[in-house]
Simulated scan of single mutants.
Amino acid sequence: MSSSTPAPQRVCFQLQVHPDRLEEYTRRHAAVWPEMLQAIADAGRRNYSLFLRPDGLLIGYYETDDDEAAQRALAADPRTAAWEAEMAPFFVALDGARPDQGAPQLTEVFNLEDQLAALDDEPGPTPPA
């Protein structure tokens, strides 16, 4: 039986890190500024991960209850501006957008938990009398 709490929005995005800056990008993300970590959490993003391929393809994932509100909160939060300004040069083709705002989002086409929950919601066979 599924719960009555709405499922969080799952957001996946991609960016391209300049291949000659991969080491530095990885090093910077090994210890993100505490104020930036708190700003992300305060905006309502959780279960946030970044995955980096050797050619610089970066895939990010997070969950939130309201991504538009989280984006507005981060855009307005002064703690994020300095971090985003420092990170922008690492990325290819953002056309002046901040990385947190210029990343194309990917469409989710499968989620195991959602499909299992849908099976649980289906009526089962009627037992014999």
Rank of each mutant, 00 (worst) to 15 (best):
F13I: 11
D114R: 11
M87A: 15
G124H: 05
S2P: 15
R46V: 11
F110R: 00
F110I: 07
V11G: 02
P6K: 03
D55H: 05
A93K: 03
A93E: 01
N47M: 06
E68Q: 11
R53G: 10
E84K: 02
P89I: 11
D121Y: 05
R28K: 08
E23Y: 10
G102E: 02
A41D: 11
R45D: 04
D66R: 02
M87L: 14
W33P: 07
D100E: 06
Q9E: 15
H29M: 12
L37S: 01
A118H: 00
D95E: 09
D55S: 09
Q16E: 12
A69R: 11
P127K: 01
G44W: 04
A88S: 08
P123K: 02
A43S: 12
P123W: 00
Q14R: 12
L52D: 04
R46L: 10
P19R: 09
V11Y: 08
Q14T: 14
P123N: 01
Y48D: 04
P128E: 06
Q105W: 02
T107A: 14
N111Y: 03
T80F: 10
E108P: 09
V11D: 00
A88E: 04
P125C: 05
E35S: 09
A97I: 04
R79C: 10
L15N: 07
P99E: 02
P99H: 03
I59T: 08
G124R: 07
Q9H: 07
A39P: 00
V109Q: 02
A81Y: 01
D55Y: 07
A118E: 04
R28F: 11
F13H: 05
H29C: 13
P54C: 10
E68C: 12
L57W: 03
H29D: 08
P34Y: 07
P78S: 02
D20P: 12
W83A: 15
T26L: 13
G102N: 03
Q38A: 15
L116S: 04
E24M: 13
A41W: 02
T26C: 06
R28H: 09
T64P: 03
D67E: 13
F51W: 12
Q14P: 00
P89Y: 05
E122P: 00
G96M: 05
W83L: 14
A76R: 06
E84M: 15
L22H: 01
Y48C: 04
Q101G: 10
D77R: 03
S3P: 00
D20E: 15
D114H: 05
P8M: 13
E113M: 07
L119Q: 07
I40K: 00
R53D: 13
A30C: 11
P8F: 10
V109R: 01
L94S: 06
A103T: 01
L112K: 02
T5P: 03
R10Y: 14
E113W: 03
D77T: 01
V109W: 05
L112R: 09
E63T: 02
L116H: 01
A7N: 03
E63N: 02
E35Y: 08
Y48L: 09
P99F: 06
G60I: 13
D65T: 10
A97F: 10
D114P: 00
E23A: 15
A43V: 06
T80H: 05
S4P: 03
P34K: 08
R98P: 09
R45W: 12
S3A: 15
E35D: 14
A117R: 07
M87V: 11
T126I: 14
V11T: 09
Q105Y: 09
